[in-house]
Amino acid sequence: MKPLSLVVLCLLGFASAASASSFVGTTDTIGASLANTVEGTTNITSSAANDKVVLEARTDAASFVASRGEVRGVRLEAALNHIRATQPRLEASDMQLAEAILAL
């Protein structure tokens, strides 16, 4: 093996390790955030777990969360309106509700 090839392989190995470490930290943060959201929205999810309007919004909720709120699908909008109509005292953001829908 040429010395240059060995250096490139070592650098790739270090980059992969750093990337994996960063990924683990990010997923831990996301997991903690989702856990907090799920705890805070237990009342919503327990009543919505069998709700067809809410369950059909899961794909739109995933797009909404992944795009940080930029992509708002029709089914998600319907589910958000439905949840707010059935839970008028609820104080949760659209993002919190979308994350709770994903947790169902």
Rank of each mutant, 00 (worst) to 15 (best):
S21A: 15
A85F: 05
T59D: 08
G13W: 03
R75D: 14
E56T: 08
S47V: 12
R72I: 09
V53H: 04
P88Q: 03
A17L: 15
V7F: 12
A17H: 06
T26K: 09
S33I: 05
N36R: 12
S47L: 11
A79I: 10
R72A: 05
V74A: 15
A32K: 15
T37C: 05
V8A: 10
T26E: 13
T26V: 08
F64V: 10
L55A: 13
R72T: 11
A15P: 04
E70D: 13
T26Y: 14
N43E: 14
E91H: 04
T41F: 02
R89M: 06
T26Q: 09
C10V: 11
A32D: 07
F64L: 11
L9N: 00
F14A: 13
L90R: 01
T86W: 00
L6T: 12
N36P: 02
F14R: 10
S67I: 04
T45N: 01
I30Q: 05
A62Y: 01
A20Q: 07
I30R: 07
A17I: 13
L12I: 11
N50K: 11
E91Y: 02
V24C: 08
K52D: 09
S22D: 03
G13A: 14
E91N: 12
A57C: 02
V65S: 03
C10K: 06
R58F: 08
E56I: 04
G73L: 03
T42P: 00
T41N: 15
I83V: 12
G25K: 12
A48N: 01
A61M: 00
L34S: 00
E39Y: 07
V7S: 14
L11N: 07
I83F: 10
E39G: 06
I44Y: 08
L80R: 06
A15T: 08
V65Y: 07
V53R: 06
P88I: 08
L4R: 15
A49G: 09
G13I: 01
A48I: 01
N43D: 15
R75W: 05
R84I: 00
S47W: 01
S19L: 10
T45C: 01
V74Q: 14
D51M: 06
A62S: 09
K52I: 11
T37P: 04
L55T: 12
N43Y: 05
T41K: 00
S16Y: 03
G31V: 01
A78K: 14
G31W: 04
V71C: 00
R84K: 13
V53F: 01
V24R: 09
S63I: 04
T86M: 08
T42N: 08
A49L: 02
N36Y: 05
N36L: 06
A79L: 03
L11K: 04
N50W: 05
R75Q: 15
G73D: 10
A20L: 13
F23Y: 14
G13F: 05
T27A: 04
A66G: 14
V65W: 02
R75L: 10
L76I: 02
T29Y: 09
E39W: 04
S63A: 11
V24I: 14
